[in-house]
């Protein structure tokens, strides 16, 4: 099958080293600085507030949104995280998830809206999303390090790339699923496309959009472990150390803490979605 040689590898390297880094290094540094301060603020907040306050806030929120059972689970879960001494790591992971999710929402939902309004845009976006979701994570971990260095920022970027697609897809789908007759009725009464979007389409697509955000959070959390390979602090590095030292116990405690966080965040966002 080797009919002609395609030097994609060389091209990519030349592109990245000879053009992208020298030309746009400053730009990426800027993004890096912004994201870094964002991550620092969130981490600072989560680690400086007493764990008890955070735990009780979450438990009460869950009680209100999803009921007693899940509130009890959160209580036990937080006790567990505290007693295996992983509270700070959990908060570091949580802050990366929060920042990556916020960036995903800020970029993903408008992109989804655009895709739902315009079929050409939709056709353009789809393959990009497929690409983002299926490309092996390690492939973009490498350029993430090159462009943004080690630490929390490339982790946020890599997490964002992996976690944003559901927000785009489900926003797009939700808006497209709004009944044609309802859209027609609104148009017939003289709505502008802006009024149609904010008064009809977004409110009716909200359950779908919330599902998208929920999925984004779940994917972000699952990415957290992998992102620790490029130096992201948090539960991921606990698990990673466990693996590299063949310390089964540490791997398990770190892994369980991630599961606890995942379940809490999942029920929390689902609960918010139902309340809206």
């Amino acid at each position: 099958m080797n009919y002609f040689e395609l030097p994609l590898e060389e091209w990519t390297n030349t592109f990245v080293y000879d053009w992208l880094l020298p030309q746009l290094g400053g730009f990426f540094d800027g993004i890096s600085a912004i994201l870094q301060s964002f991550v620092d603020i969130v981490t600072g907040m989560l680690t400086s507030i007493p764990p008890e306050v955070i735990a009780i806030t979450f438990i009460l929120l869950l009680w209100w949104l999803s009921g007693k059972g899940i509130a009890l689970f959160a209580f036990i879960g937080f006790l567990f995280i505290g007693s295996v001494d992983l509270w700070v790591e959990s908060m570091e992971t949580l802050s990366i998830v929060i920042v990556a999710t916020i960036v995903s929402i800020i970029i993903g939902i408008p992109t989804g809206i655009l895709g739902s309004k315009n079929n050409t845009v939709d056709k353009l976006i789809r393959p990009i999303l497929d690409f983002m979701q299926t490309l092996p994570i390690f492939v973009y971990l490498i350029p993430a390090i090159l462009l943004f260095g080690l630490g929390g920022v490339p982790a946020v970027i890599a997490t964002f790339v992996f976690a944003m697609p559901p927000a785009v897809r489900l926003t797009n789908l939700g808006i497209r699923q709004v009944s044609k007759e309802v859209v027609e009725a609104s148009t017939a009464f003289g709505s502008t496309s802006r009024q149609l979007l904010f008064k009809i389409q977004l409110p009716l697509a909200l359950p779908s959009i919330m599902t998208g955000i929920n999925q984004t959070i779940m994917l972000a959390l699952s990415m957290a472990v992998v992102a620790s390979m490029i130096g992201a602090p948090g539960l991921g590095s606990t698990v990673l150390t466990g693996i590299s030292q063949v310390n089964v116990g540490q791997g398990l405690t770190g892994g369980l803490a991630i599961v606890v966080l995942a379940i809490i965040l999942d029920r929390l966002t689902q609960g918010i979605g139902k309340k809206l």
Partner: peptide, 12 residues
């Protein structure tokens, strides 16, 4: 103004 067969009411 228009009235629709399937009513076209805003469900929310």
């Amino acid at each position: 103004a228009m009235v629709f067969q399937g009513f076209g009411l805003l469900p929310h």
